[in-house]
Structures are given as structure tokens and as C-alpha cells.
Simulated assay, not measured.
Amino acid sequence: MDSQTAADKNSIINKFNTTLQSFWGNLNENQQSILKKIWSILTYKWQWQIILNAPFLVFWILDQTIPAVHSFDMKLISSLPIPMIIKTYFGFS
């Protein structure tokens, strides 16, 4: 399984941002205005989906970047008074 560290992910994001900024800087004003209009149409049509899904995106990003979240979950689940047969069924024993 190919796993990346948080630093690797940040470097990929930084490379993507710099590439996107250089692409945007190379466009003339007419092309930029066309892309802004397209983006405004997309965001208008999808604004509720973006707004409602943003918290889940934040949780997913935190889940991917902070491995301590999973150890906390395992400690929390194992401390709950759940019968052992149910814990083994879900793989938490």
C-alpha cells in the first residue's frame, strides 16, 4: 500500500498551487474573465453541495493527516462497555 506522509502531501499541494498560479498568470484578461464566469456558474449551481460537504472534507483531511486520531478511536472503543463478542465481530479486540 502506498502511503504518504503529511510533509509529502504538503509538498504535492504546494507544487499544485504554484503550477495553478503560474497557469493563471499566463492567461490574458479575456481568458481569465471567461474562466471566472465559468467558475461562478459552477459555484452557483453547486454552492449548497460545497457548503454542506465542507465539514466532511475537513474531517477527512484531519483523518488523513493526523494518525493519532485512529489510536484515540481505538482507545475510546475499547474503553466502552461493549460486550466482547460485538467488539470481536467488528475487529476491535
Rank of each mutant, 00 (worst) to 15 (best):
M1H: 12
M1A: 12
D2E: 07
D2S: 14
S3E: 11
Q4P: 02
Q4A: 03
T5R: 07
T5Q: 07
A7F: 07
K9Q: 04
K9H: 02
N10T: 08
N10D: 08
S11D: 11
S11Y: 12
N14C: 05
K15W: 14
K15F: 13
F16Y: 08
N17C: 13
T18F: 09
T19P: 07
L20W: 05
Q21I: 08
S22Q: 05
W24I: 03
G25M: 02
G25P: 01
G25Q: 11
N28V: 00
E29M: 01
N30E: 15
Q31I: 01
Q32A: 03
K37S: 08
I38C: 01
I38S: 00
I38Y: 01
W39F: 08
S40I: 05
S40L: 07
Y44C: 10
Q49K: 00
Q49W: 02
I51K: 09
L52N: 03
N53C: 03
N53F: 00
L57N: 03
L57W: 09
L57A: 04
V58P: 04
V58I: 11
V58T: 10
F59M: 06
W60A: 07
I61F: 02
I61M: 01
L62A: 12
L62I: 08
I66K: 15
I66C: 13
P67S: 03
V69I: 15
V69F: 10
V69S: 11
H70W: 07
H70I: 09
S71G: 06
F72G: 10
F72K: 12
D73L: 14
D73W: 14
M74Y: 13
M74F: 13
L76E: 06
S78V: 12
S78D: 11
S79E: 03
S79K: 00
S79Q: 02
L80N: 04
M84E: 15
I86S: 08
T88R: 15
T88W: 14
S93E: 09
